[in-house]
């Protein structure tokens, strides 16, 4: 379990990718939670029965065809391990992630894109947010970015601090 020496997943440790077709249709939950820990709120929140988990200690497995992209799981994940992914036309991709820092991000904000190690890999634009007050202070932020980055970007930070 190399990922436990590093604190992040390498390419070969990632869960299987959803197909391009699926990613184009609507957003899909992608869960980076490889370690067996006693945790199951995503499984319990899923109304589509898309998350497989036989025992509370099992890592979740998503059936990408069943997932409706409703975002119930990403709202509750205590590990901040769920990302909603989507591909749009024109080489644009979207990643929705949980965000718990000040200042809160707003639609239209430019953000730096960080990979799993915290390295800056580009810039993107916030195109939708679930405000923090609607989800007990965990905001959901959807960020537009180049399509090839959706399996890399796992955190964002504001480009400039708003006054």
């Amino acid at each position: 379990m190399k990922y436990l020496e590093r604190g992040y997943l390498e390419k070969d440790e990632l869960p299987p990718f959803p197909s391009k077709e699926r990613l184009r249709k609507k957003s899909v939950a992608y869960i980076e939670c490889p370690q067996p820990i006693p945790c199951s709120p995503c499984y319990e929140a899923c109304p589509a029965d898309a998350i497989k988990m036989e025992n509370i200690n099992d890592p979740p497995e998503v059936d990408y065809e069943k997932c409706t992209g409703c975002m119930k799981c990403i709202r509750v994940c205590p590990g901040l391990a769920i990302f909603m992914l989507r591909l749009r036309n024109g080489g644009i991709g979207e990643v929705t992630l949980q965000y718990e820092f000040l200042p809160w991000l707003k639609k239209g904000d430019r953000v730096r894109l960080l990979n799993r190690k915290g390295e800056i890999v580009g810039e993107g634009v916030v195109n939708w947010v679930l405000p923090p007050e609607r989800n007990d202070h965990t905001s959901l932020v959807r960020v537009e970015m180049p399509a090839e980055l959706i399996f890399e970007v796992r955190a964002v930070k504001p480009v400039e601090v708003r006054k």
Partner: peptide, 30 residues
């Protein structure tokens, strides 16, 4: 979250002791 910087986490074991997802949360912040 409180705006305080963290220089590093040191761990004597050859692997992270806590949940991986907690480690990933801070690792992706650099």
């Amino acid at each position: 979250q409180a705006g305080v910087e963290v220089a590093a986490i040191v761990e004597a074991m050859p692997h992270i002791g806590g949940y991986f997802v907690h480690a990933a949360k801070v690792r992706r912040l650099g």
